[in-house]
Lab assay of single mutants.
Amino acid sequence: MGFKLLSKLLVYLTASIMAIASPLAFSVDSSGEYPTVSEIPVGEVRLYQIADGVWSHIATQSFDGAVYPSNGLIVRDGDELLLIDTAWGAKNTAALLAEIEKQIGLPVTRAVSTHFHDDRVGGVDVLRAAGVATYASPSTRRLAEVEGNEIPTHSLEGLSSSGDAVRFGPVELFYPGAAHSTDNLIVYVPSASVLYGGCAIYELSRTSAGNVADADLAEWPTSIERIQQHYPEAQFVIPGHGLPGGLDLLKHTTNVVKAHTNRSVVE
């Protein structure tokens, strides 16, 4: 069995187990497998329904001669939608809004960016022009300005110390501490036991640490421990890039980060 097929099978099995364990909360999309990078042309966006009122959005972007996937989250909030992270750029984010209108038909009224990198804030200006209120932590807003990236308009308070959590509509926002970046936030959907790890969490097929220019490698494993301790009931975990899975993604990420750190020390 090929690795790609095995990865998709694991996603399907995880979703099936969740649907059985929580039949009222989960209505997993039966329309197909989780979209992969090879299936999404740059400039297009796919939506994948995880649970009743919960979707991931998947886009792709060219970077350094390669094409990478990027995940975000959409959560229903009454007759409105909360968006977590842009679709990595203005063109993708405009396509995301169009796809949401086509498939869901509810307005996106608020959006949260989970850290300051372009795959999370690139497209904020498109959201703002569409009347979406954009939010991020003060740290993310400051770092985005320093980096020359787009800056969300509103500040999220109460997320300055490791372990801080605040309720934001249908989700809980959690600051686990520094990891992929010093400002990275985690998003949890309690009604569906869905954990969105953003770039602080890796997919299972990833074996290298990737972009760690703004990471705190020493603190990252401790931050992941905080996530595990705060959300032990999480059933569906979405990484910032690639295929979702279960809580095993947290341990896998820790292993990859520690291996990278150990290699760096040896070198």
Rank of each mutant, 00 (worst) to 15 (best):
174 F>M: 12
35 P>D: 03
61 Q>R: 04
247 L>G: 10
52 D>Y: 01
1 M>W: 02
254 T>R: 08
39 E>W: 05
263 R>W: 04
199 C>Q: 01
115 H>E: 00
140 T>R: 02
206 R>W: 13
245 G>C: 13
66 A>F: 07
14 T>D: 10
52 D>L: 09
233 E>Q: 07
193 S>Y: 13
49 Q>F: 13
17 I>Y: 05
252 H>L: 11
59 A>R: 12
7 S>W: 07
135 Y>T: 02
4 K>I: 15
22 S>D: 10
163 G>Y: 04
129 A>M: 13
216 D>C: 08
47 L>M: 08
147 E>V: 07
154 H>I: 15
159 L>H: 13
228 Q>G: 11
16 S>M: 05
80 E>M: 11
132 V>S: 03
31 S>V: 15
114 T>K: 00
133 A>D: 14
132 V>A: 12
1 M>V: 09
18 M>L: 03
63 F>C: 10
95 A>K: 04
267 E>G: 07
25 A>L: 13
159 L>G: 09
79 D>Y: 10
251 K>L: 06
46 R>I: 07
64 D>H: 14
88 W>T: 01
49 Q>T: 07
134 T>I: 12
75 V>L: 07
41 P>Q: 09
124 V>I: 02
153 T>W: 10
91 K>M: 14
157 E>V: 10
64 D>V: 05
107 P>L: 04
156 L>P: 15
193 S>T: 04
250 L>D: 01
121 V>Q: 15
251 K>T: 08
263 R>K: 02
253 T>Q: 12
157 E>M: 09
178 A>W: 10
232 P>T: 14
14 T>Q: 03
143 L>Q: 14
127 L>G: 08
77 D>L: 02
20 I>E: 08
165 A>I: 05
18 M>D: 02
112 V>W: 03
2 G>L: 13
195 L>F: 01
107 P>V: 11
265 V>M: 15
10 L>G: 07
132 V>H: 15
217 L>H: 01
242 G>N: 15
188 Y>M: 06
120 R>I: 15
177 G>I: 15
32 G>Q: 01
118 D>E: 05
184 N>E: 02
147 E>R: 03
213 A>F: 10
174 F>N: 02
255 N>S: 02
175 Y>C: 11
198 G>W: 01
259 A>M: 01
116 F>V: 03
96 L>Q: 02
210 G>N: 11
119 D>C: 05
211 N>P: 13
216 D>Y: 11
117 H>S: 00
234 A>P: 01
228 Q>V: 08
35 P>F: 11
139 S>C: 02
2 G>V: 08
112 V>F: 01
205 S>P: 04
260 H>L: 03
54 V>S: 07
35 P>L: 11
3 F>W: 10
21 A>Y: 13
130 A>C: 04
175 Y>S: 10
6 L>G: 08
99 E>C: 02
90 A>S: 11
266 V>M: 06
72 G>T: 09
261 T>R: 07
119 D>G: 01
56 S>G: 07
52 D>R: 06
111 A>S: 06
34 Y>T: 09
21 A>S: 08
136 A>W: 08
126 V>D: 13
178 A>P: 12
15 A>N: 14
201 I>P: 00
255 N>C: 02
115 H>L: 00
202 Y>M: 15
265 V>K: 02
106 L>G: 10
234 A>Q: 10
224 I>E: 11
119 D>L: 00
52 D>C: 04
44 E>C: 05
67 V>D: 11
9 L>D: 04
244 P>Y: 10
231 Y>W: 05
220 W>T: 14
159 L>P: 09
22 S>V: 10
152 P>H: 13
180 H>L: 01
87 A>Y: 00
25 A>Q: 05
57 H>E: 05
242 G>F: 07
158 G>R: 09
161 S>P: 10
87 A>V: 01
73 L>T: 03
83 L>C: 11
94 A>L: 09
74 I>D: 04
138 P>Q: 08
148 G>Y: 01
153 T>V: 04
110 R>Y: 03
144 A>G: 08
137 S>L: 05
49 Q>G: 07
37 V>G: 06
144 A>T: 08
195 L>Q: 04
86 T>N: 00
1 M>G: 07
18 M>E: 04
178 A>C: 06
207 T>M: 11
196 Y>K: 03
86 T>G: 14
112 V>C: 06
75 V>H: 02
171 V>M: 15
34 Y>H: 14
202 Y>F: 00
105 G>T: 08
234 A>G: 11
178 A>K: 07
134 T>F: 10
26 F>C: 12
91 K>F: 05
47 L>Y: 10
248 D>L: 09
224 I>T: 03
212 V>F: 14
78 G>V: 08
60 T>D: 06
238 I>G: 13
185 L>S: 13
256 V>H: 01
171 V>D: 00
200 A>L: 15
252 H>P: 03
115 H>F: 00
206 R>E: 15
101 E>F: 14
58 I>S: 07
38 S>H: 03
190 P>E: 11
249 L>V: 10
100 I>L: 12
185 L>W: 04
160 S>M: 07
13 L>S: 04
43 G>M: 14
33 E>L: 10
98 A>Y: 00
79 D>E: 13
28 V>C: 11
254 T>C: 07
45 V>A: 08
196 Y>M: 02
198 G>P: 11
173 L>I: 00
227 I>D: 02
52 D>H: 01
13 L>A: 12
9 L>G: 07
263 R>I: 02
17 I>T: 12
13 L>G: 09
229 Q>P: 07
219 E>D: 12
225 E>K: 07
78 G>T: 07
140 T>K: 00
66 A>D: 06
175 Y>I: 04
156 L>T: 02
253 T>V: 10
5 L>D: 06
168 F>A: 12
227 I>N: 01
96 L>P: 00
232 P>H: 15
106 L>Y: 11
18 M>C: 03
167 R>T: 10
136 A>S: 13
219 E>K: 05
124 V>A: 07
200 A>E: 11
33 E>P: 02
52 D>K: 07
243 L>Y: 02
34 Y>A: 11
41 P>G: 09
42 V>R: 11
91 K>D: 13
113 S>G: 09
201 I>M: 14
2 G>I: 12
79 D>V: 12
177 G>R: 00
80 E>L: 14
57 H>C: 02
139 S>V: 08
68 Y>D: 05
36 T>I: 05
101 E>Q: 12
142 R>M: 13
173 L>T: 04
260 H>W: 13
4 K>G: 03
190 P>A: 12
110 R>P: 00
68 Y>K: 05
194 V>F: 12
252 H>Y: 11
187 V>I: 14
183 D>E: 08
180 H>V: 00
191 S>F: 11
112 V>S: 01
176 P>L: 12
44 E>D: 10
135 Y>N: 15
167 R>W: 02
203 E>G: 10
185 L>V: 11
153 T>P: 12
47 L>I: 07
218 A>V: 08
44 E>Y: 05
182 T>Y: 02
9 L>Q: 07
108 V>Q: 01
105 G>N: 05
58 I>Q: 07
31 S>L: 11
219 E>W: 09
23 P>H: 08
95 A>V: 10
258 K>H: 11
223 S>V: 08
228 Q>S: 13
198 G>V: 12
101 E>R: 07
67 V>W: 05
119 D>K: 01
171 V>K: 01
47 L>K: 14
21 A>R: 10
136 A>Q: 02
130 A>R: 05
169 G>I: 14
246 G>K: 03
84 I>T: 10
79 D>K: 13
239 P>N: 11
209 A>F: 06
225 E>A: 05
219 E>S: 03
43 G>Q: 03
7 S>M: 02
257 V>T: 15
116 F>C: 07
34 Y>Q: 09
65 G>C: 03
40 I>C: 10
19 A>G: 08
163 G>D: 09
65 G>P: 02
251 K>F: 06
146 V>Y: 06
136 A>T: 08
212 V>H: 14
231 Y>K: 10
73 L>I: 10
158 G>L: 10
233 E>A: 05
136 A>D: 03
237 V>M: 02
211 N>F: 14
193 S>M: 13
201 I>G: 05
122 G>I: 15
221 P>C: 07
165 A>G: 11
16 S>N: 08
187 V>R: 01
81 L>I: 13
128 R>E: 02
21 A>C: 08
241 H>S: 01
57 H>Q: 10
167 R>L: 09
247 L>M: 15
56 S>W: 07
265 V>Y: 02
66 A>I: 08
230 H>W: 12
198 G>I: 00
220 W>C: 07
256 V>T: 09
201 I>F: 00
180 H>P: 00
229 Q>D: 15
224 I>A: 14
26 F>V: 13
252 H>I: 09
108 V>E: 00
51 A>Q: 14
194 V>W: 07
45 V>H: 08
144 A>S: 10
241 H>M: 04
50 I>N: 03
33 E>R: 05
